[in-house]
């Protein structure tokens, strides 16, 4: 019964068709009658466990365990049975998460397992994940909480268009730590983090190590917009995973892209296990 419930929750989650890198081309060709449905026979691919777990200090740990399904199968997510999830942390901390499928009202994300108490975590703390299911599949992962990189300033500037077309770009500045190999995720939500972000990209310090970063947007925000600006500091494994997910989604429908495998942060399956480390600011642009 509960499995049916979480399947429905995950199935109801709006699945955006991201990654059609040449969506415009597809639409154009479709309108010209140059697209058609075809039958494709794909070889069998054994289902693998998939985990998504983003730990956050001060929040009760929760995660989703699903499994891969054949691409053309029914869209309902396939849920593995009798899954046991154990989280480990500093000083021998251990928590066996309960199977409690629900929808997080803040993030609007479904989860299958939830902990019992808010997480205590500081930068540098190491956490472990251990997932098993009734088929004997075993997934493990380790994650270290990155340091928080503070946002120095959030600025905006309006263009000189007439009032009705007046738009602003936003600049966020922060100082990259001196050591090389820092990865970030920059998001701007309008009004609430529950909605799809207006801006979302993943810079790194390969060309700007140890210097001030300026991240910006195009002219896209109207006067009196409330913006939630978030700067995540990622570890390399999570950044690689995000890149591989983008590449994989981008390759479906893009004849110029080379399909890439998923670089999971976990072993024994697919997915991500990480500790979020971010700073968030809310501004009203005027």
């Amino acid at each position: 019964m509960r499995i049916m419930q979480i399947s429905r929750i995950l199935g109801t989650a709006h699945c955006g068709q991201r990654g059609l890198g040449v969506l415009g081309l597809c639409a154009l060709l479709s309108s010209c009658g140059l697209q058609q449905d075809i039958d494709v026979e794909l070889p069998a691919y054994p289902a693998q466990l998939v985990v998504e777990c983003y730990l956050e200090p001060g929040k009760v740990p929760q995660l989703t365990v699903t499994e891969t399904t054949e691409y053309l199968a029914d869209p309902s997510p396939s849920l593995p049975q009798q899954v046991q999830v154990i989280l480990g942390g500093p000083a021998g901390w251990r928590d066996t998460l309960r199977f409690a499928p629900a929808l997080d009202p803040i993030t609007q994300k479904a989860y299958t397992h939830r902990g019992r108490a808010p997480l205590q975590a500081r930068p540098g703390d190491v956490f472990t994940l251990d997932v098993t299911d009734e088929q004997g599949r075993h997934l493990t992962g380790t994650a270290t909480m990155p340091a928080i990189v503070p946002i120095d300033t959030v600025e905006w500037k309006f263009n000189d268009q007439p009032e009705a077309q007046r738009k602003a770009y936003v600049l966020v500045r922060f100082q990259d730590p001196p050591e090389a190999g820092n990865y970030y995720r920059f998001q701007i939500h309008r009004d609430s983090v529950s909605k799809d972000p207006e801006v979302d990209y993943n810079p790194q310090d390969r060309l700007n190590n140890g210097r001030e970063f300026t991240l910006g947007t195009s002219y896209e925000f109207a006067p009196n917009d409330t913006l939630v600006v978030t700067l995540y500091h990622l570890d390399k494994a999570y950044a690689d995973f995000m890149q591989s997910v983008d590449d994989a989604r981008g390759a479906n429908g893009n004849p110029f892209a080379q399909p890439a495998g998923i670089k999971s942060t976990v072993q024994g399956g697919l997915g991500v296990f990480t500790v979020l480390s971010y700073q968030r600011r809310t501004v009203v642009i005027k």
């Binding site: 691919y45 054949e70 479904a110 529950s194």
Partner: peptide, 13 residues
């Protein structure tokens, strides 16, 4: 194959 990816805050699955 495919899997459902929900991502962090606010992003569509």
């Amino acid at each position: 194959a495919r899997f459902i990816f929900q991502d962090i805050y606010g992003d569509d699955a």
